[in-house]
Design a protein around this nucleic acid. Structure first.
Lengths: 220, 220
DNA sequence: GTTTGTGAACAGATTCACAGCT
DNA sequence: AGCTGTGAATCTGTTCACAAAC
């Protein structure tokens, strides 16, 4: 299931998807899960999805149509079926093993955050360069030296890393993550980082968010 | 300084700025601070800023030119001067008082996160709906009932709220934040929220980020 | 000579509007 | 009759390329 088949282009689809489209898919998926949990089983129209998400109906249809024809004309989208399709597209129809690097305040919070694991994202190991933290336990996870990352990544088949180290260490840590063969990195360090081709880096920068809010309050 | 002058359009500028431009300003500002800390006082060209940020030089110039003429032709941008201009534009040439609502794992992490306060963003009070948490201290901050928010917001002149409550509570909490007269909200709850006009909502959705990473790893 | 600031060209994303299917 | 899927039009953001300033 967690195969790493080495073909360059695994399937026929994917005619260059706008990043924002992919990000909206997560929202659609969450809405569908909520509706299902509420017992709603009516087919869902793009119009109704529009009300639920705040995106336009045309955008909902366009976004979904990038990946195929999931709806029935005159009817709408089947909640169950579309949910399964989105799970498959987003790659969340599987379990992901994740290493957390940097066990500071934010790192510790993410270790205990339930929102990830419920959707198949499992932080299975934690690393820190600070020797005084080594051996410390968080639930079933023991903090280890960053040097152990390559070995552990192989042993535990880790496919993602969450980086929550101070900015000055971030590039060095990311280099180690890449050297460990990990291809996906979620970076919380507020700094510009380089990764080689074939490695994906997604950045969450809280300074940018709060300064954007500051801008909006100041200039609007 | 933290005046709330009630004119609809406070200054001459602002000819509709692309949100992404504003978000890049934060990055420029951070680079400038770093350069200054390193003792670099050469004027900075858009070309050099391009190398440091990964954005194109043309984009750097266009972004800055939205707000005025900060550079000298043939020379570049003065590090000190541009830094001051960006501080003013971003509204971070002042102190912000922030209420944190929802003292769970993530909320606690943000309470101890140093990255905010060093740049003038101060979490000065914390609220939770869980009575067992009331009175608990984090440094100088005592956790209080959410019902106290309107009173405390007034007393402590709070201008922003960070919302880190479970999704099911988020809309109710945001309504209380709005009722308390707070105009800027940084929301971490993974759910769609409504705020009235004049209130700014910035969303940080970790599910979207990690699912986007999952998509990239699955489809690239 | 160098580098900005900016019209004009370009690229990308969103919305419109309707043909095509159920 | 109703709603999707999609070309075409529109809107928004980025890059080009060069005249103006130093």
């Amino acid at each position: 299931m967690a195969d790493s088949d080495p073909q360059p282009r695994p399937m026929i689809k994917v005619p260059r998807i706008p990043p924002m489209t992919v990000r909206r898919l997560s929202t659609y998926y969450r809405i569908l899960r909520t509706l299902e949990a509420l017992g709603d089983s009516e087919p869902l129209s793009s119009e109704r999805m529009s009300h639920l998400t705040g995106f336009t109906a045309a955008q909902v249809r366009r976004d979904l149509a990038y990946f195929g024809s999931f709806g029935k004309r005159g009817v709408g989208y089947d909640i169950q079926e579309l949910q399964l399709s989105l799970r498959s597209i987003l790659g969340i129809d599987r379990q992901w093993a994740i290493a957390l690097v940097g066990v500071g305040n934010l790192g510790m919070a993410l270790l205990s955050y339930r929102g990830f694991s419920s959707q198949g994202f499992h932080i299975t190991s934690a690393f820190d360069s600070d020797a005084t933290k080594h051996g410390r336990r968080f639930g079933s996870i023991v903090v280890r030296p960053v040097e152990d990352l390559p070995r552990v990544a192989g042993e535990e088949n880790i496919q993602m890393a969450i980086v929550t180290v101070p900015p000055a260490e971030a590039q060095r840590v990311v280099d180690q993550v890449v050297a460990a063969g990990i291809k996906g990195i979620l970076n919380f360090a507020p700094t510009q980082l380089q990764v080689p081709k074939g490695v994906w880096l997604v950045r969450v920068d809280l300074s940018i968010e709060i300064e954007y809010l500051s801008y909006l309050l100041t200039n609007s």
